[in-house]
Computed example of a mutant assay.
Amino acid sequence: MKLRSPRMLMAGTAAALVVPLAGWGAGTALPQGSENAPPDPSGPPSHAVAQASTTQTGTTQARPSTDRQHAARQATSSRQQPAAQQPPARNPATLTGIEVKSGDDSYDRVVFHFSGTQGGKRLPDDTQTWLEDYPRRPGSGKPVEMEGQLFLKTSFSPATASASVRKVVEADLPNVAEVRYLGGFEKVQEAAIGVNSCHGAPVRPWFEVTTRNSAVVVDVGTPNCTSDEPVTRECGDVAFTPQSDHGAFGITATGVGCDKARDVAAAAEGNLGEPYGTSGGFSCRVERDDSGQMTSYDYTCTRAEATVTFNAS
């Protein structure tokens, strides 16, 4: 048998050592707890990034930066944890009608009717907000003039609206003057309740909201008005003939909205210089005014404590 020289034995040993070291230097990481065990293929992909590895020269590579470690942990976490389940989307109910009812002497009632409240749907969430001025249409922001001195906006979400919903519900009750459907935007439907509070005084009455079967009910209470003065609004003009001096001018309204006041003044066109009454219950008296270049007439129209005044010519 031929004996190998010591130099050949040392060379063979060195060659044998180079093979596994070259494998580690290629980027395969050693698992924690065992320096000789092979990498675990079933472990998370980021495990190799987070551990130190040994190069061919026997030195230890620096650990990844903090940002890379964090990214690796985040990637591992997102793979290991199931995605959070989102709550099922609510199917919007549909506003189908608005009803106004007279209560006793302490309140008036507004009822918003909805359909589709069965079969997985339920009444929408509702919010009420007192407005400082006329309500505005959702989306466009255009002001909407309506009866009343105070305005309570009611919003419903998520909800849609039927084409059959009345846009204007005239009430002319002690507390509720009118209800208007304002419109919808992005599954939010809005309506406004015009309130005759203290015949024009800015006193906000109490209100209460309840739900009954497929309806949202808003009860508007009667405030204590003993110490409040009525508020008068300026409501502009109404032309009987376009671009002329023939019309009703300087219309004011106390205890009633401007829309109603302009309707009352417009009725003077066929009764110029004469007293008249309106279908809404206003009684108008007149005084002749000859102080100007042409004769005009000062009207004062009243219904209970509501008053409309204007000059017509």
Rank of each mutant, 00 (worst) to 15 (best):
S227V: 11
V216M: 08
A29R: 14
T160R: 14
A261G: 01
R63A: 15
G120V: 04
G194E: 01
G247C: 01
D125I: 08
P45D: 08
N175V: 15
V110N: 06
G58T: 01
E170A: 03
R285W: 06
V169G: 03
A161W: 04
G281T: 06
S155K: 14
I193V: 13
A239P: 11
A171C: 00
S5E: 15
R79T: 13
S313R: 11
R79P: 05
A14D: 07
F114Q: 00
R262I: 03
S296N: 12
V188D: 03
G277R: 14
V144P: 01
A161Q: 06
P82L: 14
I193W: 04
R68I: 15
E229K: 14
R68H: 12
E287F: 07
P45L: 07
A201Q: 09
D172N: 13
N36L: 15
T154K: 11
D40F: 05
A171M: 02
G27A: 05
F156N: 01
K121F: 06
A306S: 15
K101V: 01
V218H: 02
T252L: 02
G97N: 14
P174C: 09
S34R: 10
W130C: 09
A22I: 09
A201R: 10
G183T: 02
N224E: 09
V169F: 02
T232N: 08
G270T: 00
V169E: 05
G247Q: 04
F207K: 10
C198L: 06
D228C: 11
H199Y: 15
A11W: 08
Q69L: 15
S155V: 06
Q149K: 10
T226Q: 13
H246W: 00
H47G: 10
H246E: 00
D228M: 13
Q85W: 11
G194M: 00
N196L: 08
P38T: 10
T94P: 00
L3C: 12
R73L: 14
F151A: 06
V256C: 01
N213V: 11
A191E: 05
P92R: 09
S77V: 06
H47Y: 07
E274I: 02
S65N: 08
G58A: 04
A267D: 09
N196T: 08
F207Q: 09
G97S: 12
V111G: 09
G120M: 04
D237P: 00
Q61C: 07
M8G: 11
T76H: 13
R204L: 11
R137M: 10
H246M: 00
R109P: 05
R136D: 05
A72K: 02
V110G: 05
S197H: 08
G257R: 03
G12C: 13
E186K: 14
V49M: 08
A268F: 02
Q74M: 09
V203P: 09
T54H: 04
M10F: 11
F185A: 15
V203W: 11
E170R: 03
V18G: 13
E170M: 01
G33R: 13
